[in-house]
Design a protein around this nucleic acid. Structure first.
Lengths: 166, 166
DNA sequence: CTTGGAATGTCAACATAGCTGACGTAAATT
DNA sequence: AATTTACGTCAGCTATGTTGACATTCCAAG
């Protein structure tokens, strides 16, 4: 074995050059990742922020505004602008909380669900193609590295994302 | 084998739920990915756009403005605003092209290189930690999936990024 | 040699999506 | 009754993107 090893394992994947390539891969891949939904949203009065809101409302129906705020990591003023337009256009509706009437539980309307479907179909199609081309083994690694790249809090939110929420 | 298979290979990794988790992983991971440089830039008069410019100028010293434009995928007006401030602050300098005098070949100054180092050190540190935690096998998969997720053009740019350019 | 087009800069105007700060209201909690 | 929480909103600012129009310089081809 001519390679530089530590405890039997090559560390060549930790060179600055390799890390740099990883950084650039993230940059270019993220562009691809958002390209298709962006194309759909372009022309409508919506943008990436609306996409994210609709995505997570669909993902956690009945989520409160506060919950959405922590997931998206933006200010309430910023989110509110987005939600307002989604309300006005009838894509999202808010139901007053049962136990706590201050809360507004968010739900997609049929129209909102349709947009969400269009957006996520496009995004999933790309993801599916990439997954299929790369194979299950690679996908496993992909997910592992991404998870390791998150902040603590983000990782928790990510992992706890199946629960319909608090 | 109790799993659903096609040509001997489980396709469970292509379910909508798996794809959705992949999408969300990209979302949260990208936040982590940019968090550290953003923290450094915050307070200076610079933002993510400056980071990207400095990164790619460092990566391909002598690159022309046009080259940078195609890599970054923004308009010249947008890039110009960024470059102007980098010039004014003495982080980047432009040398007139030897053969084609219309071109401006971009280079980092010592000061610019210092900022680039600070930013990329931070970003690489996170990447390194993630890589180390995930292991070489996972990193391989990570890169494979990301590459498959890019657009054609982006992939070419990504792959050809070692060349010091035309 | 002239001319067309390429590489670049720049002015102006605008949109999106983030931010801070301040204030208001209703409902829950103490 | 007083305080805190959840949410909304007004106002203003910043960063980064966009179009469109126009000028300069210079290479390259007719």
């Amino acid at each position: 074995m001519a390679e530089n090893t530590t405890s039997g394992e090559s560390l060549l994947f930790l060179t600055d050059e390799q890390l740099r390539k990883g950084i650039e891969a993230m940059f270019f891949a993220y562009r691809g990742f958002t390209a298709d939904p962006d194309r759909i949203l372009d022309g409508m009065d919506y943008g990436r922020a609306h996409h994210r809101a609709v995505h997570f409302i669909n993902r956690s129906p009945g989520a409160t505004v506060g919950h959405l705020l922590t997931i998206l990591g933006v200010t309430k003023q910023s989110l509110n602008r987005v939600l307002r337009s989604l309300f006005n256009d009838g894509l999202v509706e808010a139901r007053v909380g049962k136990t706590d009437k201050r809360e507004r539980r968010l739900h997609l309307t049929e129209k909102g669900a349709a947009l969400e479907r269009a957006l996520s179909d496009a995004q999933r199609a790309r993801m599916r193609a990439a997954y299929r081309a790369a194979g299950p083994q690679a996908v496993q690694g992909f997910r592992t590295v991404l998870e390791a790249m998150m902040d603590q809090d983000q990782r928790k939110q990510y992992q706890g994302l199946k629960d319909k929420h608090p």
